[in-house]
Each structure stands twice: as C-alpha cells, then as structure tokens.
Amino acid sequence: MNNDLILLGHGSGGKLSHQLLDDLIIAKLSRTPVRGQNDAALVELAGAKLAFTTDSYVVDPIFFPGGNIGDLAVNGTVNDLAMMGACPRFLSVGLILEEGFSKAELAAILDSMAAAAESAGVSIVTGDTKVVPKGKGDRIFINTSGIGVIEHTLTIDGASAQPGDQVLVNGSIGDHGIAVLSAREGLEIDSGIVTDSAALNGLVQELLALGESLHVLRDPTRGGVATTLKEIAAQSEVNIVLDEESLPINLGVKGVCSILGLDPLYVANEGKLLAIVAPERAGEALEIMRRHPLGKDAAVIGEVTGTADGRVQMRTSVGGLRGVEMLAGEQLPRIC
C-alpha cells in the first residue's frame, strides 16, 4: 500500500481518519491548540457563546429508505451543534452538482432539506452552488455549516466522562448504515429497515435538565457506537465496559448484519446520541429519553470504569470480555 496517497479508509472515521486529522490537517491548519475533538467548535463572539460546525455529505446512494442526502445534511449538522448542548439556529448550504444531474431529484432533495430545517427549528440563511463536469463528481455533494447558541453553562465534552458514569443511547443502533447499504447494493430485504436520520436538538434540550450530571453527548455517526466510544474513552482517559445484551438493535438489522458479517457496533447512525451521565441521575436520563419520541427504545448500554488508558470492552453474552477497537479503515465505504 502506498503511504503517500489518500486512501478510502482515511474517510472512514476510524484510525486512519484520526491519523490524517492529527498528522496533517490539524497540524497545518490549527493556530490555536485543539482541546480534544468534539463535534463542533465553541467560539465566543460579541459576548455570545456559540457552537460552530461544518460537515460534508457524499452518501451513495442519494435516496435511501427513510430519507435522502438532503435531510441527512440538515440533521447531521444540527446534531453536531446539539451535541455541544447548543441550540442550532442558522445553516449554510453548499451544493456541488455534477453536470447532467436530474433537476427533479435536486428539487426532491431541496424539499426534504427545507422540511428537515423546519422541523429542527433552524433557518438556512446562505449558500453556494457549483457545477462540475460530468465524471468529476458523483451527482450531488452537499456541505452544510451551522451556528448554534449555547445558553447553558455546563461542560459537555468528550473529555468529561468519569468512572461510574452510565452510558446511554436513545434507541436502536445501525439502522442508517444498513438502510443505505441495502439501497446502494440493491439488497432485497423485506424487514423494513429505514434510516434513523433525525434532528436530536429537541431531545438534547430536555436532557440539559440533568445539569452538571450530563457529562458527554456524542452522535455515533461514521464508525458507529464502537468508534465514538473509543474516542470518548481516549479523550476522557477512562475505560468503558459495554454490555452486549443491553444494546438495542432492531431484529432486521441484527439479521442482515449477521448474514453480512457486519458488527452493528461499527455501523453508522444519524439519529442517535450517546449520553454519558453521572450514575445517580442515569435513571432520570433514561426516563427523559423514553418520554421523547426519538428515545422510546433508549437503554443503558454500559458503564465507565476506572480511569486508565482508553480501553473499551464488551461483556459478551457468554460472559467473556472482548476488546472493542477502533478499526483502521472502513467497515462500510462512504455511508454518510
């Protein structure tokens, strides 16, 4: 393998992505020391505390069960802001279109962007459109940037997990990745797996009621729950133990994953958040989630154990402990 070239794996969200980020991108671009890597940057502007983020969407296919690249682009950026506990307000939209792309499909995508923005309560206020020659792009790429306001004074940060904390997820994992995969590969699955793509800012606003007990919020997108927890464990210098049997996984996803040999723990989500909460209020956090329409299947899936070297392990159904590692490259290519 050639070490001088960008590999597909550099975009997987796994180990290679982190290396690229640390060794090249942050090293070249960041003039301020980076404290951890969170979903959005915290900035202060004219006395206001803001969260600021950007994300590009290159999903293939652009239409898939339950959604398309448009609502994904809105929800994804809204969620990155929400994971800082911010109230998302304004989005920009950058479109890169390939010559020959269908206007009808573009219209459908824009419609779902508008609808997603409306339901998340954000305004799309600026944008840009470029067209590249046929073959120089793949139909449509979308970039969205977002600004949100931070009204709380909490430190919600990937580095804030503490021993004893409980790890919660607001529902079933792996739906998005499998929905996209089955659309892309034309899998004939009759189990009705659809993307979980959704804006989580409403749910987050309610979780803020946990106050100081809410330590970490993260959306397990690329790389899935496994990769996100590895990041948190490393940032917080703690160990995390997951309980295999408590992971909420839809039967359909479980079935497809077992045939395909995929581990749902590494499959992408677009409407899920991981919340790491002080143990005394974990029960309350679970109740808040379960009361919310996006948290009906919420579950406590693990626990932060002693401070150490960022190890994540899973207690398997036969009672053993299996190490959960960050993959070097991708398990699934280009899913979000």
Partner: peptide
C-alpha cells in the same frame, strides 16, 4: 438469505 449471499458474492459486500 440466498439473495443476500448472492449479492455479497456478486458485489463483494463485506
């Protein structure tokens, strides 16, 4: 299952 296995083999999915 047959259709999934065939797709995996045809398209190299995982």
């Amino acid at each position: 299952e047959r259709s999934l296995f065939l797709k995996m083999l045809e398209r190299g999915i995982n």
